[in-house]
Simulated assay, not measured.
Amino acid sequence: MQAPLVITTGEPAGIGPELVLMLAARQAVDWVAIGDPQMLRDRARQIGLAVELLELSPGDPLPEPCSGRLPVWPVALHAECWPGRVNAANGAYVLELLDLAVAACLDGHASAMVTAPLHKGVIREAGNDHFIGHTEYLRDACGVDEVVMMLATDSALHGQVENQRQALRVALATTHLPLKDVAAAIEACSLERVLRILAADLQRWFAVTAPRIAVCGLNPHAGEDGHLGREEIEIITPVLERLRSEGMELEGPLPADTLFTPRHLEGVDAVLAMYHDQGLPVLKYAGFGRAANITLGLPLIRTSVDHGTALDLAGSGQADPSSLGVAIALAADMVGSR
């Protein structure tokens, strides 16, 4: 029997727990959540959902899927929790959810992991001063040198992209960095590793036999021949030329302000942006709530939602579980591809 997907419920004061409960209330689930069972029961009662929790341990078989029932691997909260009110004492709890999911994937008790949003500030306040985000934490937990963060709209999750107005995949050369640190982080060796991982995993998980990747420049107008910055001339272009000589299909470096238009995106399988807010605002405008976050380059499958903890919505029952549903469906398809 195939091991189940595991879903971390994320920041307990955010919308993650109720997104998981909403999906379980609406459909028969063949996956297991990780979180505090009493917190989940309290949240279900608060938002008016009738969901039965079934507490299991890693390795236990799942029951026959049935709507209104949620299998859970229990992890206890470290402190009381109220929707919308974060508590730094629960920062370690959120990391325990991730650690259990990673261990289960590596041990074969889970086939993939899907993550609900966490609150980076809470985890830092809990004493993890160097915590940057899910992507970097999972990289270090799995002991790999480089991972790639990629978001994709739901219509671009499988195979070749056909309609760029609705379908878009955007990967990042750097992830959660202050803007002032981005230029120094664009290094030839790292950029080359990112492009190799992106191309390989587009082939592996998305059935793209010969990935065509468009690469953004770092500077306005892609540096305008060195007048607006020399990173394109000294770093990005030499890397692209070296990889092209090996047969990779790479375009760029291209100005980001015109790259994200249908004419330039035609036939492109993914865009590599140089930093977080260069590429992700465009993708989220194209498909916010209908997209998933994928971490490429890990020895396990990890997908996630395309949004944050939405503390203002927590406990209201008004949050939209669509992105979590997309992330779960994508993880299941990736498991099938493997």
Results as ranks from 00 to 15, higher is better:
His264Phe: 14
Val51Ser: 05
Cys189His: 15
Asn219Ile: 14
His158Gly: 11
Arg26Ala: 15
Ala156Ser: 00
Tyr275Ser: 12
Ala28Phe: 04
Leu56Ser: 09
Met113Thr: 13
Glu125Leu: 07
Asp277Gln: 12
Ala50Arg: 13
Leu168Gln: 03
Arg230Pro: 03
Ala256Thr: 09
Leu272Tyr: 05
Glu187His: 12
Gly226Gln: 04
Glu146Arg: 12
Cys81Gly: 06
Leu172Asn: 09
Leu243Val: 10
Asp129Leu: 14
Phe206Ile: 08
Arg204Asp: 11
Pro4Leu: 02
Leu218Gly: 05
Gly289Gln: 07
Thr303Gly: 05
Ser323Met: 03
Gln160Val: 07
Thr175Asn: 11
Ala319Met: 01
Ser245His: 11
Ala152Ile: 13
Ala152Gln: 01
Phe131Gly: 13
Leu298Cys: 09
Thr8Leu: 10
Gly108Cys: 06
Arg290Asn: 13
Ile186Asn: 01
Gly127Ala: 09
Leu118Cys: 12
His109Arg: 08
His130Glu: 15
Val75Lys: 02
Lys284Trp: 04
Tyr93Ala: 10
Arg124Asp: 13
Ile186Ser: 04
Ala103Val: 13
Leu118Ser: 14
Leu56Pro: 08
Leu49His: 10
Thr135Tyr: 06
Arg169Pro: 02
Ala200Lys: 09
Ala50Pro: 15
Ala171Thr: 08
Ser111Pro: 06
Thr115Asp: 04
Thr261Arg: 05
Pro253Ser: 14
Val271Gln: 01
Ile186Lys: 01
Ala103Gly: 09
Pro238Asn: 11
Asp129Pro: 10
Ala101Pro: 00
Ile123Gln: 07
Pro74Phe: 11
Ala116Pro: 02
Val20Phe: 09
Ser316Thr: 10
Ala270His: 03
Val102His: 02
Gln278Ala: 09
Ala24Gly: 05
Met113Trp: 00
Ala13Leu: 02
Ser322Trp: 03
Gln160Arg: 09
Leu54Ile: 10
Ala207Phe: 03
Asn163Glu: 06
Ser316Asn: 07
Trp31Met: 09
Val335Gly: 01
Asp277Arg: 08
